[in-house]
Simulated scan of single mutants.
Amino acid sequence: MKSILEKCSLLSLLAAAACALLLVGCAGGNGNQGETEYADDAFIASLAKGYEARDTLVEQSAKEKGSVEYYEKLVDAELSQVEQYQAAQFQDSKLQQAAIAYINALKDQRAAAGLYSTDNDQYKKDWQKAYDKRTELLCVFVEDYGLTVSESHQDSLDALVSHGKKVTRDNGEKAAIESLAASIVPEFTQEYSSYTGKATVTNNTGFDFDSISFEVELFDASNVKIETAYMSASHWLDGETVVLECYASTQDAPATVKVVPSYYQIAEND
């Protein structure tokens, strides 16, 4: 009886040891399954491949230019390479946002291409807007993430990156000037049969202006626009405070105003 019990105990120990070894083996074999595969490098490589494919079509298909099919084919050359990354996981969240924005810009261009023969004016507007966004993002991919292309496509990429830098610069200027306009709140006082609006404003845009002008939209208590007045400044340096004036011929002082930029010329620094 004792011999049988000893054999059973031995078998149990062997079985337990075998299970332990099996579990260790399984754990070792699946050690990499918990590691996340990020798409950062793969996206940049696919972006380069798609860009070169599109650029090649631009060079080869010049005779087809001027058709919906031509523009759709250009976009598809890139989109077919990068669209898969729209739902991919990236280690760099900023790169992921830029990748998604780039894919969306390509989709916007493709949608614009469909308007080429039916609404050409809208096509130009939508295509250019997406083009500007695309070139801004190419700037980011080149400067921050090391996007490179083969030598035969370098000149075209350089041209797009240069355009993207201009778009970024122009957008920065526009945002700064719109913020400046929003800070202008003229106070109106009556002078004889008209009203004069004055506002003390500091130029905090980071730019020196040779000249700048604003439209001052005047609204009554019912929020009906009753007049548009104008104010301007010349040789207005960054950090400088000036008093801006406008004149209204309305019978009553405006209830609310909205100031929007209408023209500006940034001074050239030597």
Rank of each mutant, 00 (worst) to 15 (best):
I212V: 14
M1N: 07
F219W: 05
K165D: 08
D238L: 01
Q265H: 12
I226C: 10
A87V: 07
K165G: 05
I226Y: 05
I184V: 12
F214V: 05
Y71R: 06
L180R: 05
A221Y: 15
V243R: 07
L138K: 01
V242T: 04
A181M: 05
Q89L: 11
A39C: 04
L106I: 03
S179W: 01
S117Y: 05
G28T: 06
D210N: 08
V243K: 13
K133E: 08
P186A: 15
Q91W: 15
E6Y: 15
H153F: 14
R110G: 00
D170V: 03
H153R: 06
Q190G: 09
F214G: 04
Q84F: 01
E240H: 04
S213H: 08
S222R: 02
Q33D: 15
S150P: 00
A130V: 01
T205Q: 00
T250N: 09
Q265M: 08
Y70V: 05
Y71E: 04
A101M: 07
A112D: 02
A15R: 05
K258A: 12
F90C: 12
L160S: 14
D41F: 08
A62F: 13
L237E: 11
E173L: 05
I44D: 11
S211G: 09
I177W: 04
Q81D: 09
Y71S: 06
A18V: 15
E52T: 13
G34V: 14
S67F: 06
V201M: 04
E240Q: 15
A45W: 03
